[in-house]
Design a protein around this nucleic acid. Structure first.
Lengths: 167, 167
DNA sequence: CAAAATTTTCAGTAAGAATTGAAAGTTACA
DNA sequence: TGTAACTTTCAATTCTTACTGAAAATTTTG
């Protein structure tokens, strides 16, 4: 396989993966492109490479920066902004977990707490509170486990993985 | 809060959560509805409750059955099919991981292996192979860790969670 | 076996999400 | 301070995905 073909395939695959996980395809593709770029790219280069519009490129680059997956880089004597991806996969994973936990898991936890206070002592109500309680317990555990994972350093997590594999 | 309001809120929340995780909203809502239903529901009851068409209900119920999150239940003397959700949250989580691992993580692993074989010894090519190698290593570890999680029984996982919380 | 009940399929349509492109905004240099 | 280089915004549009509803298929029952 030629280098260019490999790069294209990677960009496609990463894009598809993203789209199955609630990340828009272009955002994942820009990320992929920057991951395999040997050096920082400008918005124009990204537009050119992925054949997307300026607006689209800009929006998705900003989103990646917000997620902490891409950094801005200013080049000596250049007025343009250049962009570079975080290449430490552990950090990438960590950032994604932090973002999604905050945006998706935590709001669900709050709703579960709220609805676990429904009135009534009928069987219906009791059963409802039961299952909501179960879900809440599970979600809290997941939340705390994820906190742990993201708060500890890379080695801790790698060690956990290694331990898991040894079992 | 009244029971009905709590139920509605739960269905909405679960639907939103699903839609951020690549599960279509209706599928997640049907799942939520069945989770909090005190007994098995027929397709008609689901249609009625969520105000969706027969076709839509059917498709999503089938998908939930495929995912192993919902079971068919036949009632004595009734011709209709009734449906009931798996309520053990651990099993639900496990099923979802198994499905998504197979459909999303494993294909990515295969692509990464394939593209790690690009020809050429230029710096460009070497750097590309390096980063792909990193990603592949990370993805394999995640894959194996998930295997471990899903293959062990509930207690093992719960214990791991508890251990995490103690740290 | 016929007909009634129920489930499945799928072409057409609707709803929602992403993208474009041009105009407005910003920055930085002479 | 003016203007050229560059970035951001957002209304209109396109693309994608989900949903409907009616027809076809299947299953059950007398």
């Amino acid at each position: 396989m030629q280098l260019q073909e490999g790069k294209d395939k990677f960009i496609q695959t990463w894009g598809t993966l993203g789209s199955h996980w609630g990340v828009n395809r272009t955002m994942a593709q820009v990320h992929a492109l920057l991951l395999i770029a040997p050096e920082a790219l400008s918005a124009d280069e990204i537009m050119e490479d992925l054949q997307i519009s300026r607006g689209n490129a800009n929006m998705n680059i900003r989103a990646l920066i917000d997620w902490g997956l891409v950094y801005k880089e200013l080049k000596q004597g250049e007025r343009k902004e250049f962009f570079i991806a975080e290449k430490d996969m552990w950090k990438v994973f960590r950032q994604i977990i932090i973002q999604r936990k905050k945006k998706e898991l935590e709001p669900v936890l709050r709703v579960l707490e709220e609805i676990s206070k429904v009135e009534g002592e009928t069987n219906q109500a009791k059963e409802f509170k039961n299952i909501i309680g179960d879900i809440h317990l599970f979600a809290s555990k997941a939340n705390q486990a994820l906190d742990n994972v993201t708060q500890s350093d890379s080695n801790w997590f790698v060690n956990t993985f290694i331990n898991m594999l040894k079992k």
